[in-house]
């Protein structure tokens, strides 16, 4: 498997990965693009969507196409932190404590319905997500790169859920909204299942691995070389700073959002085959970066505003950079 050396090769590889994923995830091109940007940027993704739209399929396909380890945890109210990270257990044979590694010891971790677990268990993921290491019995274990958490939450069923704390939300690079496919895409999907082109179940065997962990590391290194003009960076910062003093928003985004926006815009430019970032790239990634980092005021919610509509207004009002 060859690893990209130049930005052009990186773009080509990124497109190949994207193409493979779009073969099984019909009509979710935007979601696939955003998840890949997060992967290249080294961030985590919170996916929100109703069941049955292919969230698990997305992660399995990603693991297959990138030849990465994949684990899935179904979050439930009785899930304990040690069920996620692992624990030390006494082995009577050797008369010693043995570390039993939890499902978080992987490269792609699907945290399904993350908001069903109590805060204590959700917090167990904080260290994993931020420091990419797991501490068991005082001993720190570093996770292998790349490591990415894809957490899902269901927007409809809020009964018995624990909303994610702001500190944890901020650690997700993107919040990706996965919606129903369009009519044409759904027709294509049903036809492909009916004629046996793809299986109705989560069958990803038809996919071939086009990259590996080293290739992802190379993509990450190359995306960091994409040129970011000071004016464009200033535009990104102005967008984030405006969220802190914008009508209808009570809590704006943190400086972590500014960093995320700049990094994600570089990866977006790489996907577009450019070695420089344009203001358009910033706008493309602004919504997934900011939508979970802003909190609407009470009266904005009463008036029926959503984070999406607030960001729409914000993007329209913050002046585009000029040269």
């Amino acid at each position: 498997m060859t690893h990209p050396q130049t930005l052009a090769e990186a773009t080509e590889l990124a497109h190949r990965i994207e193409q493979q994923l779009n073969r099984v995830l019909i009509g979710q091109q935007q979601v696939v693009r955003e998840v890949l940007i997060a992967l290249i940027t080294g961030g985590h993704v919170l996916v929100e969507g109703v069941p049955g739209l292919g969230k698990t399929l997305l992660v399995r396909s990603l693991g297959r196409v990138l030849d990465l380890d994949f684990n899935r945890i179904q979050f439930t109210p009785d899930l304990m932190p040690t069920d996620v990270t692992g624990h030390a257990m006494y082995d009577p044979k050797s008369e010693q404590f043995r570390i039993r590694r939890g499902p978080a010891f992987t490269q792609l971790l699907l945290a399904d319905e993350i908001n069903r677990a109590p805060a204590k268990t959700q917090a167990a993921l904080l260290e994993v997500m931020q420091e990419r290491q797991i501490t068991i019995e005082g001993k720190a274990f570093t996770l292998s790169e790349p490591f990415m958490v894809l957490a899902t939450q269901n927007p409809l069923d809020q009964e018995g859920t624990y909303p994610l704390p702001e500190a944890e939300l901020d650690r997700f690079l993107f919040k990706v909204l996965i919606d129903y496919p369009g009519h044409d895409d759904e027709t294509t999907l049903v036809n492909m299942v009916l004629d046996g082109t793809i299986a109705a179940s989560l069958d990803v065997d038809s996919l071939t691995a086009v990259a590996d962990a080293d290739a992802i590391a190379a993509l990450k290194t190359l995306s960091a070389t994409v040129l970011l003009d000071p004016e464009v960076l200033d535009y990104a910062l102005r967008l984030v700073r405006t969220t802190r003093d914008f009508p209808g928003i009570i809590h704006g985004a943190s400086p972590r959002a500014s960093i995320a926006l700049a990094r994600a815009a570089r990866a977006q430019a790489l996907f577009e085959g450019r070695d420089f970032v344009t203001p358009d790239d910033i706008q493309q990634v602004a919504r997934p970066v900011l939508r979970h980092r802003i909190q609407l005021s009470a009266d904005a919610e009463i008036e029926g505003q959503t984070p999406e509509s607030a960001l729409e207004r914000l993007l329209a009002q913050v002046e585009a950079p000029k040269q």
């Binding site: 344009t278 358009d280 329209a316 585009a320």
Partner: peptide, 9 residues
Amino acid sequence: VHRGTTEQQ
């Protein structure tokens, strides 16, 4: 066209 509209948009 808004204040935030870019050339590409």
